[in-house]
Write a protein that binds this DNA or RNA. Structure first.
Lengths: 333, 333
DNA sequence: TTGTACGCGTTATCAT
DNA sequence: ATGATAACGCGTACAA
C-alpha cells in the first residue's frame, strides 16, 4: 500500500484534479459515468484524502484534544468514549494527552495541540475539584469532571451532592434509619459534597447520621475497614453504611463479613463511583452510584461542536448521577 | 488569542515570510538582530506554527495512532504513557481510538487514522492472544500486548511463561514446596503460558503442583474464592498459591482470611498484573507480577521511529515481566 | 459538464 | 543576509 494522491486518481481516471475532487465529494455537477470512473480509480489506488491538506483549506482539522491529568484513565476513558461516540469516529479524532498532574507538561501538551490546530479541547481533571483555567484560547474549551475556576469557562461536572442524596434516599427507601457515612479525604470537594447531600436528605427525614458525624479519612480500603470497626464499636445498631467510594465500601464489606454481620439483611452498604472491578466482584456485589461519565463525554462533545459553530456557553453545568442497584442493599423486609 | 500566521509575524517584523521561517527555525543564515526581531514578533502575536502545513511539506504529520480494543484502558494507558514518553510530547501526538472489540469500528478508525496521515500505528489488544493482522499498510505498525497472526508483522509482547516461572521461583525461594496454581479461563493463552512457566520451574525443582493440577476457571474473585475452598479441601497442606491474576488473588486472600489461615506465614500468595487498586489495598498487600507495560510502550515508540526511518522489524519480541514484592509472600522463616 | 487557477501556511531552493 | 517563488494535496470560484 502506498499513498495515492488526488492527482494520481485524476490521471488514472483521465480527468482533472478538480473533477476528481468534485466526483469524490458528491458534488452534483458531474456526470454519473465520470463519477463512477473516478470512484473506481480511487478504490483501485486505495486513495485516502489527505486530511491535513483538507484542513489547511477548510480551517478545520477534524481533531480535538483531550487533556487529562488522570493517570489511570479511570475517568478520562469513559469520557473519551462518550466524546468519540458523539463526534462520530470518522468525523473527528481525539488526541489524548496526559499531563500527569504536572503544570509544565500541561503547557507543553497545550502548545502541541494548538499547533496541531485542534478544533476544540476537553479538559478532564483527576479529581472533581476546581482547577485553574487555561485562560483565553483560540479554540473552544470544555472542562469536564473538574470545573474551571473561571466562571467564563464552560464546565461540566457530575452531581456529587445529588449523589449523596440519592444514596441516602435509596437506603431510606430500604427502610434503614440508622445510616452512617464513611468517606475519604475531607480536602476533596467530592467528599464534602457527597456528605452534604447525604445529610440534607437525612435531615428532610428527621434523621441524623449514625455515629453522630461523617467519618472522613482516606480513599482506601484500609480506611474503610478501620472506620467500620470504630463505627461498630460506637454505634452497633447501625443498619446502613454509605461509603464515599467503592474502595472504601470494599473495606466496609470486609469488616462486616469478618464480624459475621450479614449484608444486606442486617446492614446495607452502598458505594460510590461504580468502579466495576471493585463493585461487581465484591461480596455481595455492591450497590453504588455511577457518574455517567460517558454521557458527560457526549455532552462535552456536543457543547464543543456548538462552540465551534459559534454557540458558546459558560458557567458550571451539573449532571445527574445514577443509582446502580446490586445486592449489597435490599429492603429491610 | 487569535491565530497568527507566519505572514503576520513577517509583516510585523518587517521581513519576508522566508526570512521569518528561517529565523524561527534556527537556520544559521540570518542576522542575529533580525532573528530577534522576528522572535519578538512571534511572541507578541503568540504565533504557533501550523503543524498541518508543515506536515504537508515534510510528509510527516508528527502523529501516531494508538488503536486499542481494551475498553477500560487498563493495558492501553500504560502503553500510551510509555509511548508518549519515548516520542517526546512536543514531537509526536497520539490519537487514541477504541475499537471496542468491533472489527467494523476498527476499520473505520483505521481509515480515519490513515487519512490523518499518522506516521505510524500501535495496535493494542484487549488480551494477550494472537489477533488478526491489519495487513499491508502505508505506515509502519507495531502490535503491542497482543501479537499479530502474521509473522511478517512486528509484535511486542510480555513474557507470560517467564512470569509464571518468576512467580513460582519467588515462592520456592521463600521456602515453599507445596505450591498450587489457580488461574482464569483456559481459553486465554495468557492462562496457558503462565501455567506452563509455573510447571516448568516446579519440575526443575523436582516438585509437582499442589492439588495435582492447574485450577483453570474464570478471571474473577468469585472463582478465586471457590477454587481456594476446593483446594483447601483437597490439599490442606498447601503452603503457597500462585494466582493467575490479581482479581483471582483477591478471592484467594479472602477465603484464607476467612479460614483464619495466615498470609504469608502459613500460605504465601502471589498475583499477576499488578493492578494497583487491587494489589495495594488487599490484606496483606499483594506480591504480584508487573507487565512493564510502560516499557513496552517506550519500545513500541522506538521501533516505530526506527521503522519510519526505514529500519523495519518483524516477528514476535518478548519482554520480561517484573516481580513486585509486597507482604503476601515472605520466607518460611 | 469539465478544466484552469488560486489559495490554505509552511519550508526549501534559488536568486539577489 | 534576505527575498521571491515553487512546491506540498486539496477545494472551489470561475472560465470554458
Amino acid at each position: 500500500m502506498s499513498r495515492a494522491t488526488l492527482r494520481d486518481v485524476a490521471k488514472l481516471a483521465g480527468v482533472s484534479v478538480a473533477t476528481a475532487s468534485k466526483a469524490l465529494n458528491g458534488q452534483p455537477q458531474v456526470r454519473a459515468e465520470t463519477r463512477e470512473r473516478v470512484v473506481r480509480a480511487a478504490e483501485q489506488l486505495s486513495f485516502s484524502p489527505n486530511t491535513l491538506a483538507q484542513g489547511l483549506i477548510t480551517q478545520r482539522s477534524g481533531t480535538v484534544g483531550l487533556l487529562t491529568s488522570d493517570l489511570e484513565g479511570r475517568f478520562s476513558i469513559p469520557i473519551l468514549m462518550g466524546a468519540e461516540d458523539a463526534f462520530g469516529s470518522d468525523q473527528t479524532s481525539v488526541f489524548l494527552c496526559d499531563a500527569r498532574g504536572d503544570a509544565i507538561r500541561e503547557k507543553h501538551h497545550l502548545r502541541a495541540l494548538l499547533s496541531r490546530r485542534v478544533d476544540g479541547l476537553i479538559v478532564v481533571g483527576a479529581r472533581p475539584d476546581t482547577r485553574p483555567s487555561l485562560g483565553d484560547l483560540p479554540v473552544p474549551v470544555v472542562y469536564a469532571y473538574a470545573p474551571s475556576d473561571d466562571p467564563a469557562d464552560l464546565s461540566l461536572i457530575t452531581d456529587n451532592v445529588g449523589g449523596g442524596r440519592t444514596a441516602v434516599d435509596h437506603l431510606i427507601r430500604c427502610g434503614r434509619r440508622r445510616i452512617a457515612h464513611i468517606t475519604g479525604d475531607p480536602g476533596y470537594s467530592a467528599a464534602q459534597d457527597r456528605a452534604r447531600g447525604a445529610v440534607e436528605r437525612l435531615t428532610e427525614e428527621g434523621l441524623e447520621l449514625a455515629g453522630g458525624e461523617v467519618w472522613f479519612g482516606m480513599w482506601s480500603e484500609a480506611w474503610g475497614r478501620g472506620a467500620t470497626r470504630m463505627l461498630l464499636d460506637r454505634c452497633p445498631e447501625v443498619d446502613a453504611i454509605f461509603a464515599g467510594s467503592d474502595e472504601i465500601a470494599r473495606g466496609v464489606l470486609d469488616v462486616l463479613h469478618e464480624e459475621r454481620i450479614d449484608v444486606p439483611s442486617r446492614v446495607a452498604v452502598i458505594g460510590f463511583d461504580n468502579w466495576s472491578v471493585l463493585a461487581v466482584n465484591s461480596r455481595p456485589p455492591l450497590t453504588t452510584i455511577d457518574h455517567n461519565l460517558e454521557h458527560l463525554g457526549r455532552i462535552a462533545a456536543q457543547r464543543l461542536s456548538a462552540a465551534m459553530d459559534g454557540v458558546t456557553g459558560s458557567g458550571v453545568e451539573t449532571f445527574p448521577v445514577r443509582l446502580i442497584t446490586r445486592e449489597s442493599t435490599a429492603p429491610l423486609r
